[in-house]
Amino acid sequence: MSPGAFLPETPLVNGLVIVVVTGLIWLGSGWLEESAEHLAAYYGLPAVVQGSIVVAVGSSFPELASVVFAALAGVFDMGVGAIVGSAVFNVLVIPALSALVSDDDLETSRAVVYKEAQFYMIAVSALVITFALAVIYVPVDGRALAGQITRPLAAIPLLLYVLYLFIQWQDVSDHDAGTTGEEVSIGFEWARLAAGLVVILVAVEQLVGAVESLGHTFGVPEFLAGITIVAAATSLPDTLVSVRSAKAGKSVTSLGNVLGSNTFDLLVAIPVGVLIVGAVAIDFAVAAPMMGVLTLATVLLFALLRTDLLLTTYESYLLLAAYLLFVGWLVAETLGVTDLIRTA
């Protein structure tokens, strides 16, 4: 996975590749998200389903691609790190930015709080259980707290996502759109969606290769490289669509995208990487602390959304402060000041 067949693999070149492909991910995701949004509106889907399924899956495609390419490259820890890092960014930063750019406090709904947020917390728990089962039943010889996630174990989160889709389908069945939808060119929107997927695939492949090369150069663990650089780049689409929706007064779609995107990442993106390569090793000593941080971040967002079903300016700054604390902890881990993440 080199960042380019005709480019030297130096830190400067890899850094430039990361900057360029991040822009390409943003461009391709913009095409994909706009097409997905127009198609969802055309077919008359409810706002919460539009945000949590159609737009969320579209904006999550960079994370899915990063896991697939990381698994194929034998650096699955980087892919998992990208998913967890992106999830933490999504629940702390994106809602805060969405609330700050909106004209008033970011309004939510009981459907978002009691269905989307609670199901997302179930998704986090299901993935932790899957990792634990891998350590218990398929341990890796010679590595403490390491296990193989096999295809049968990967089916656990996938089946839970099927349940999530069933719940959303029930909402669609009960929804009365009221109109036939927007007048859009269906052929053009589907073509633009496909073009966005192709651009994202190519860009993410180069991104994973460049980050892997930089990690080897500077001795950065794969998980930490994924949770910082790759996660930040792949979170750009989610930021774009949620902030844009909030600015347009579509707060339910904005929050639905955040929670739906994270649910897709945890229950689909990681298992798909396992299904492709057959089995991957997971270091529970690395994954468990990060999943614990993700759980705390999710609980914080849930608590703030539940208070008056609003996200205020003060609460937004609290979320941003929590993310800065998270980044500070990662820096401390990288420098060896703290030792909660036990990397090999």
Results as ranks from 00 to 15, higher is better:
296 L>W: 07
77 D>A: 03
155 A>K: 03
190 W>Y: 14
56 A>P: 14
314 Y>N: 08
273 G>S: 09
249 G>K: 08
51 G>C: 10
152 P>M: 07
103 D>N: 07
120 Y>S: 02
119 F>G: 00
219 G>V: 06
298 T>S: 15
53 I>N: 03
205 E>A: 08
47 A>I: 00
36 A>G: 10
137 Y>Q: 12
285 A>V: 02
227 I>W: 03
266 L>M: 14
27 L>W: 11
176 D>I: 01
334 T>L: 14
85 G>S: 06
50 Q>N: 02
184 V>S: 04
55 V>K: 00
208 V>Y: 10
120 Y>E: 05
303 A>H: 11
194 A>D: 03
258 V>T: 08
83 I>M: 09
232 A>W: 15
270 I>Q: 06
217 T>P: 05
110 R>G: 15
166 F>C: 02
113 V>E: 03
4 G>L: 12
167 I>T: 01
88 V>Y: 05
239 T>A: 00
196 G>C: 05
280 V>E: 11
277 V>E: 09
37 E>A: 13
295 T>N: 01
62 P>F: 08
291 M>Q: 10
337 V>A: 10
175 H>E: 00
13 V>S: 13
81 G>L: 10
331 V>S: 02
339 D>P: 09
6 F>D: 03
338 T>R: 15
203 A>N: 08
108 T>W: 03
286 V>I: 15
136 I>S: 03
335 L>H: 13
148 Q>F: 13
170 Q>F: 04
33 E>L: 14
60 S>A: 15
250 K>Y: 06
175 H>Y: 15
254 S>N: 07
76 F>K: 05
259 L>G: 06
106 L>K: 11
250 K>L: 12
115 K>A: 06
317 Y>G: 13
175 H>C: 01
128 V>E: 02
316 S>Y: 05
243 V>N: 02
106 L>G: 09
262 N>S: 10
44 G>P: 07
19 V>Q: 06
35 S>C: 05
151 R>T: 08
289 P>F: 04
209 G>K: 12
176 D>F: 02
264 F>M: 12
320 L>W: 01
